[in-house]
Amino acid sequence: MPTRHHAPQPSARLDIASAHEPLSTYLTQQFDTPPVHITRSERLSGGAIQENWLLEADVAGKPQRWVLRTDAVSAVAASLSRAQEFAVLSAVHQAGVKVPKPLWLCQDVQVIGRSFFIMQALDGNASGHRLTHDHAAPEGNSALCRQLGANLARLHQLRPPQPALAFLPAAAPDAVQASVDQYRSFLDALPGSHPTLEWGLRWCELNKPAPLPACLIHRDYRTGNYLVEAGALTGVLDWEFAGWGDPREDLGWFTARCWRFGRPDLEAGGVGRLDDLLAGYRSVSALELDRQALRFWQVMAHLRWAVIALQQAQRHVSGQQRSLELALTGRMVSELEQEIILLTRGGHA
């Protein structure tokens, strides 16, 4: 990336499909070899906050496939910037977590009018509905669950301080209480009152386990955010919510009923058995966690999703972003409340 002594004036925001030429020029600068020609680009599905584009390129006669990730028009400030996400992706890639290999970060807004990074394109499908319907076997895909467990445990081996991740906010000494306080403040900022969510938050406050030392957590590690090819994990996606936290939060999120799509009977993300996920996790980490202890983190997961769903519905209702998808997300809250009631009265999801 060229260094500049003055603040660059951003160029016009370019649609990727019409930016093949400046992107090819930028990519050519990253290689010592002959020119890079982008031959095709395609917007990948998913991502209201980020855009993901598949780039097909020719480098000295060799075809290459990359994914370019950049801010969408409706970018919000709540998640990591692209530069920060690139740093997280680089750190977890080095730690041996299966992710798309991060290649180049471009913060020069002259190129396409916004920051972006480029990573290796991986084969596979991420669709939660497809993945949970592909497992006709009653026990799901045991090997995939072990890979997902081991991979998550490898991520959780990363502990602060990490100089490359110094931008991440410091871990709260009591992560659960910090989350409870944050969700309450989110609820207070929304119209109306939500007794069931208040009950769930109070229950968590009363039943919280002793905190564990903080580690890097993904915060959206779930079916729908990883790629599977021929039944095997190829990579974990969407690192924009990563931060320091309690490793059990990721396990609760992954196994919460709300992320099991077409197979609610398969506790490990609708793709397999909990025992397989935990066996994979324990093959890397010494953390012991049984179904009973996991219940607490599943309550936290449903609370988090319910609060986010209320916020998303409010974006629609307030007129900030009219959207059928956001409107329907609001109607998911009672399903999440059902899980909170069932889990806190002693059942399991």
Binding site: S193, H194, R202, I341, T344
Partner: peptide
């Protein structure tokens, strides 16, 4: 009424006796 209940739950009014609360929340749910 929702606001009253939410406030009381947060302040711990149902910490010791949650059975009736849970029955009510479940019926509404």
């Amino acid at each position: 009424a929702r606001e009253w209940l939410a406030r009381n739950i947060r302040q711990g009014a149902y910490d010791q006796h949650a059975t009736r609360l849970l029955e009510a929340l479940r019926a509404i749910n």
